[in-house]
């Protein structure tokens, strides 16, 4: 395979981590959509996870500072709404890292969201894997997470909501 410049930029960007969940890269989360080279300019396209997520500004800065030491000074980070980001895009590896970090990854497919109301999802504890857990709050430390507690090991934990 011919190694192009775009490939090496992708390689650099794959290492950029999410500021809120630093074990996950933007590649794991499925945020990174496209890399284009136009003359001396690099255009990186990302999709926002949540509309008001303050981490997006941080990620934009992190992308630029990851590329800068490699001589890429002219970088534009474009945020697009289409396609709409979904938790389905979080990679299998990302889900494992998330669980090891103490956050239960999304348990449903995003298509289930329309029937979300009135139905309870089983959210297993990331520490002891117990299926007996309870919802403490719909919103955890960030908008993308809910707050749960395990009925068996009693540990509180975050659940990355299906989106």
């Amino acid at each position: 395979m011919v190694k192009t410049e775009t490939d090496s930029i992708w390689k650099i960007l794959k290492e950029v981590v999410d500021p809120e969940i630093p074990v996950l890269t933007i590649q794991d989360l499925g945020i990174l959509q496209d890399v284009k080279i136009e003359g001396n300019k690099i255009i990186v396209t990302i999709v926002p996870t949540y509309t008001g997520c303050p981490a997006m500004d941080m990620i934009t800065v992190n992308i630029k500072s990851a590329l800068q030491p490699h001589g890429y000074d002219d970088v534009e980070v474009k945020l697009v709404l289409e396609p709409t980001w979904t938790t389905d895009w979080i990679s299998e590896e990302g889900r494992i890292k998330m669980k090891n970090y103490g956050i239960t990854p999304p348990q449903e497919k995003s298509t289930d969201i329309r029937s979300l109301l009135g139905k309870d999802t089983i959210v297993p504890c990331p520490r002891c894997d117990s299926k007996s857990t309870k919802l403490i709050s719909h919103f955890g430390s960030t908008a993308c997470k809910a707050f749960y507690q395990c009925n068996d090991c009693k540990e509180p934990f975050d659940y990355f909501k299906c989106h």
Binding site: Y50, T51, G52, C53, P54, S137, H138, F139, G140, A143
Partner: peptide, 14 residues
């Protein structure tokens, strides 16, 4: 408190 401010964040983002 956190829930309401998270909802605020979603709405202002929208």
């Amino acid at each position: 408190d956190i829930a309401m401010t998270n909802i605020a964040l979603d709405l202002i983002g929208e």
